[in-house]
């Protein structure tokens, strides 16, 4: 089995590279807590490229509206049909913002309507146990943006497993720090990224 490589997908319409340090943080956490053979740096792959089919987990984020091109839509459909897991995080922290509205519309066209992922879902137990569902971010706890704690992630399943995980919790901001600064963090919720990786690799 080849090593796991964190993949950020590049789409044409928005700011796909708005959280450049998420990859490093997730890789750091995977190395720190698991024996998974992980590549030391992530890759960036155009969503319309066949290359996305080489990665079990792909990450998509941004602030701006998301409008997939026909090629991106087709490739994402193919990727999900082949068992890949797409993790989307809204880099904004708002309600019904442009990213949320456009991205969920696009995802619904590709993967079907998104539904709440229950807090007892296997995703929250695939490695670390998160009893209350997705870990909160400091943005939520500090009352920034919409002054709201999002209790659930959204998702779409294919054949009994999650194919799309969609977050409004702004992990893109929360996890976008240099890994060397991890020692200053009291609650390390990048551990949830480990769950995502383990879920993608084992389910």
């Amino acid at each position: 089995m080849s090593r796991f490589t964190f993949c950020t997908v590049q789409y044409e319409s928005g700011d796909w590279d708005s959280a450049p340090l998420v990859a490093a943080n997730v890789i750091d956490a995977v190395a720190r807590f698991t024996s998974i053979d992980v590549a030391p740096s992530g890759v960036v792959v155009p969503l319309a490229s066949d290359d996305v089919l080489r990665y079990p987990l792909i990450f998509l984020t941004g602030h701006l509206p998301v409008r997939f091109s026909a090629a991106e839509r087709a490739m994402l459909t193919k990727y999900l049909a082949r068992g890949g897991l797409l993790f989307v995080d809204d880099h904004n922290h708002d309600i019904d913002g442009p990213f949320h509205r456009t991205c969920t519309e696009e995802l619904a066209r590709v993967a079907g309507p998104l539904a709440r992922i229950p807090t007892r879902h296997a995703l929250y137990r695939s490695f670390f146990t998160f009893e209350n569902g997705p870990p909160n971010t400091s943005h939520e706890l500090n009352g920034w943006g919409d002054n709201l704690v999002h209790e659930h992630l959204l998702g779409a399943e294919r054949k009994g497993r999650l194919a799309v995980v969609y977050s409004n919790k702004d992990y893109s901001s929360e996890w976008s720090f240099h890994p060397e600064n991890r020692k200053f963090i009291s609650v390390d919720n990048v551990r949830f990224g480990v769950n995502l990786v383990v879920y993608a690799l084992t389910r």
Partner: peptide
């Protein structure tokens, strides 16, 4: 391109 951060795994 985003900054490339190489983690010392």
């Amino acid at each position: 391109a985003p900054p490339a951060v190489v983690v010392d795994v």
